[in-house]
Computed example of a mutant assay.
Amino acid sequence: MEKVQVRDLQRTRDWIDTEERMIAAEGERRPAPPPPEWLIEHGIGIRPAVRVHTGQCWDTRTRCKPVPLDVARRALSEGIPACPHCRPDTALGILD
């Protein structure tokens, strides 16, 4: 029984070493690009924009596209709603 436990312990240690090496190798890769500053969320299909977000918003979905500052500002001024969580209208100084 003791031999089985020692073998299992060594297997676990080997697994941990392998995982730590993989994590270290991932850290050597290029860092992820910074998130975009502004996002516009589009509806399903070909629907128009439905919401404007900041790049750090936690409530973004897969239908969000990065946009430059002027596009985000124009979208808000044209009546596209601001996300109620990240409040890009406040960040941009555009309030109703």
Rank of each mutant, 00 (worst) to 15 (best):
E2L: 13
E2V: 15
E2M: 13
V6I: 10
R7M: 12
D8P: 00
L9M: 12
R11K: 09
T12A: 11
R13L: 14
W15C: 11
I16F: 13
I16K: 02
D17V: 11
T18C: 10
E19R: 14
R21N: 11
R21C: 05
A24G: 06
A24K: 14
E26M: 09
E26A: 15
G27M: 10
G27H: 12
G27F: 10
E28W: 00
R29Y: 00
R29A: 14
R30G: 11
P31S: 07
A32Y: 10
A32K: 15
A32F: 09
P34Y: 06
P35L: 06
P36N: 03
P36L: 03
W38I: 03
L39N: 06
H42M: 07
G43D: 07
I44H: 11
R47M: 03
R47L: 14
V50H: 02
R51T: 12
R51D: 04
V52A: 05
V52W: 00
H53C: 02
H53L: 03
T54H: 01
T54N: 09
G55H: 02
Q56H: 13
W58H: 11
W58T: 07
T60F: 07
R61C: 10
R61H: 13
T62H: 09
T62E: 14
R63P: 02
C64R: 04
K65R: 15
K65G: 00
K65Y: 11
P66D: 00
V67D: 02
V71A: 12
A72T: 03
R73I: 02
L76G: 02
L76T: 06
S77M: 15
S77A: 12
E78K: 09
G79Y: 08
G79H: 05
I80L: 12
P81K: 14
P81G: 10
P81N: 09
P81H: 08
P81W: 06
A82G: 14
C83L: 07
P84T: 03
P84E: 02
P84Y: 04
P84H: 01
P84W: 06
H85K: 08
H85V: 15
H85Y: 09
C86Y: 06
T90K: 15
L92W: 06
G93N: 12
L95D: 09
L95A: 07
L95K: 08
D96L: 10
